[in-house]
Design a protein around this nucleic acid. Structure first.
Lengths: 157, 157
DNA sequence: TTAATAATAGTAACTATTATTAATAGTAAA
DNA sequence: TTTACTATTAATAATAGTTACTATTATTAA
């Protein structure tokens, strides 16, 4: 049960996850690997994703969606998700450094990990929204982010 | 479509969410409201949860689980989840203040919100684990949290 | 009072994920 | 090499959380 074999299917799944920066869902991984192994099954994809996570080679992203997303980078880094189209990118390192330096905990939980998740508009959607704004009478903008959590994306979920 | 009525079902769902600190799932909400309205249906619960979110009266919690959780507090605050039993609590305000003061963003996304999620052991599970440790020969502890994301809880998901 | 719209309970459908099954292929010991 | 063992696979069935649909009832607006 703990002597894993590196099968062609497993290797391909890992390679595809390492190649892309798109943080694909399970079925997106399935579509990718099917190009090289056409008769691979969804069950194989799910099973191997779970094994690769258990081995610490990839990670699952907590993205507040029903569809899990997977990341070929197993090391600590944070994500940002576009509330418009659902696209997920990595946050730049230097932006995270400030935050990490300032976590001091005196609290009755034993903290073993954390996940910092930003929501917003990716460059493309930001531009699209700015274009739309110009066609309208400007109204007082609802600015979340500073006072209120905003996690109701209109994106792909 | 945007003239909502405050029906008894909707009012009860909101009241129950405001009363509890347990961040219940949809079916837990269903169990709660069924005590007063025994013939309410799951569909009604889901529909009203969605409407209350749209109205900004409650929020859905991004908890990395298949089961969504709901929170009667619509204002910004952060959560911590026990990786052992899945319990979710609010993070103390003062712990978050440090972090918030240090987010300075120069990045091509328009950030409209964020979610900071901690993982760990709640007081009960922490004690249980410490008890278990005493029965074993102590081994070098695998300490995540500082260098590696840890989001593979063994809890209720 | 009439028409339009929201909301409801009940149920069916959907979808992401997990479990099962029978077959296959590496691996280790005899 | 044979044998037994175990990991893995494709295909398919099952599960579970959520959403959509349907007929009916309640509320609001004209």
């Amino acid at each position: 049960m703990n002597n894993y074999r590196m099968t062609p299917q497993r290797r391909l799944i890992l390679e595809e996850l390492r190649k892309t920066k798109k943080h694909p869902t399970a079925s997106e991984v399935y579509q990718l690997v099917r190009k090289n192994i056409p008769d691979i099954s969804m069950g194989t994809v799910y099973r191997n994703l779970a094994i690769l996570i258990k081995q610490g080679k990839i990670q699952r992203i907590n993205n507040g969606s029903k569809k899990e997303r997977y990341d070929g980078n197993p090391y600590e880094h944070f994500h940002i998700k576009c509330t418009e189209c659902g696209r997920i990118d990595d946050l730049p390192e230097d932006l995270v450094e400030n935050i990490k330096r300032n976590i001091n905990i005196n609290f009755d939980y034993k903290i073993t990990g954390y996940d910092l998740f930003f929501y917003g508009l990716c460059p493309d959607c930001k531009r699209r929204q700015e274009d739309k704004m110009e066609e309208k009478i400007p109204e007082k903008s609802k600015n979340y982010g500073s006072l209120k959590l905003q996690k109701l994306g209109k994106g792909e979920d």
